[in-house]
Amino acid sequence: MNEATIEVTGLRKRYGPTLALDGVSFTAPPGKVTGFIGPNGAGKSTTIRVILGLDEPDEGRAWVGGHAYQALNHPLRHVGALVDAAAVQPSRTARNHLLWLARSQRLDAGRVDSVLGQVGLTAAARRKAGGFSLGMRQRLGIAAALLGDPPVVILDEPFNGMDPEGIVWMRALLRTLATEGRAVLVSSHLMSELQGIADHIVAIGRGKILADAAIEELLTGEQVLLQTPAPAEAAQVLQRAGGATTVLDDSTLGISALSARQVVEALGRSGVAFAEVSTRRATLEDVYFQLTNEETEFRTGTAVRR
């Protein structure tokens, strides 16, 4: 097993009446950015907490580089994680926050200054973390994750609170980390953030994996956009013709599983009026909505599972 791999198998976890994780399995391979997506409350953070040994699963296991997290000697040298950027003692300076972490991993103080430089916090290193903006705290959290130069990096919602400049920086950082051969697991509830940087997507909803696929596989589908004054009739006709429709607004339908030509033909046969037909490549956003809609509609459906 490569050091730079996260392997999650059959995780189940119940909090009282809520089933938070219901058989979660996936692998985050080395050298790739794996996007871990799902709506709020889907089980992303719980899964990450289980990987980090913070929560104990009722069933299943999560291994990092072939080892249980608890068995790692200096875990931050194997896994770097950003879980909650607000988790700092407000009266401690940024540098001291990293310093105690370094001490716990038997890293020297030089490493602290080096990661501070890497995330651009050198100037703020001796300021109290309590006065940091959310974006600065995110950077501090990233610095903590990179402290042990780990082969596996896990970032929970790293884009939260970042300004546009920060987002650009973060995207570049994630790519670099993957290029260096690390396994990078990035969770987000906003698909657009991961577009263009994720190599692989693991989608989760209601504690179940909805999709676990390379980004190319997910984005193969084309969507036909239809402008029509009678969207309800059109939807009926197109579904009969074998298409799947989504209502995008009161005059626009999104159609998949039918080509633009097939749509025009079907509408023509039935005499439904339409203003415009266009095609568009599916975005991660579409895939996401499609996946999560299916999950809400067919709770037991296994969707696009590979």
Partner: peptide, 25 residues
């Protein structure tokens, strides 16, 4: 950034050295 050369997991460091690290932290 340096290349990832992770130290071996689990075994190795004796318990006392581990505790010293936690204590220093």
């Amino acid at each position: 950034m340096t290349t990832t050369t992770a130290p071996p997991a689990a075994a190795g460091t004796p318990e006392r050295a581990r505790f010293t690290a936690v204590l220093r932290a």
